[in-house]
């Protein structure tokens, strides 16, 4: 039941279990699929995208299974860092997909941001709080972080020189 829920949840999240299945078929068993993730990178860009989607699915299922309130993709990212460490660096295909997508990252959140038109009432009611959070919060954060980072980094730099 739990597993069924899990599959349903990830499918409802829009990512099909097919991505995992395709990896499983390629490597002949689900266990080998996990181990084979290290090598899937040699299947070029489709391989890199399949790996990334699979890790998102796994992360989401994991978070759902254990009721952890963090995005599954963040768990997927940590797994990927682990995979990179195991293989001694990012594979060419993943790096290529990342570098190609980087300049357009902001574009992907336009659909979510447009939703603000349906929360116009909330914005009208609490706009002052929002402005305080954005302007005051950001200014304080930059000043405090800048000062602390300067003191600490300067100190470590001096240590290096000695």
């Amino acid at each position: 039941m739990l597993i069924k829920d899990c599959v349903h949840q990830t499918a409802a999240g829009g990512l099909s279990p097919w991505t995992f299945l395709s990896v499983a078929i390629r490597f002949r068993s689900p266990f080998a699929a996990v181990a084979g993730c290290l090598d899937i990178c040699s299947y070029g860009i489709p391989g890199a995208i399949a790996l990334v989607c699979t890790l998102t699915v796994l992360g989401d299922s994991f978070a759902y299974l254990f009721g952890i309130p963090i995005p599954g993709a963040a768990i997927g990212m940590m797994i990927l860092v682990g995979l990179f460490a195991a293989r001694g660096g990012p594979d060419q295909a993943s790096a290529m997909v990342f570098d190609a997508a980087t300049p357009y990252f902001p574009m992907f959140f336009v659909p979510a941001a447009v939703g603000v038109i349906s929360s116009a009432e909330v914005v009208a009611a609490v706009w002052f709080q929002l402005v305080v959070a954005v302007v005051f919060g950001t200014a304080v954060t930059i000043v405090v972080t800048g000062i602390i980072a300067q003191v600490l980094l300067h100190k470590s730099f001096e240590d290096c020189e000695k």
Binding site: A73, L80, F98, A101, G115
Partner: peptide
């Protein structure tokens, strides 16, 4: 949003790929 959802889903993939600059 239903039509534009693939773009929203790509956000998840992008977080996973943040492993690249991190590494």
């Amino acid at each position: 949003f239903l039509q534009a959802e693939p773009l929203n889903l790509a956000l998840g993939a992008i977080i996973v790929l943040l492993a690249v600059p991190f590494y």
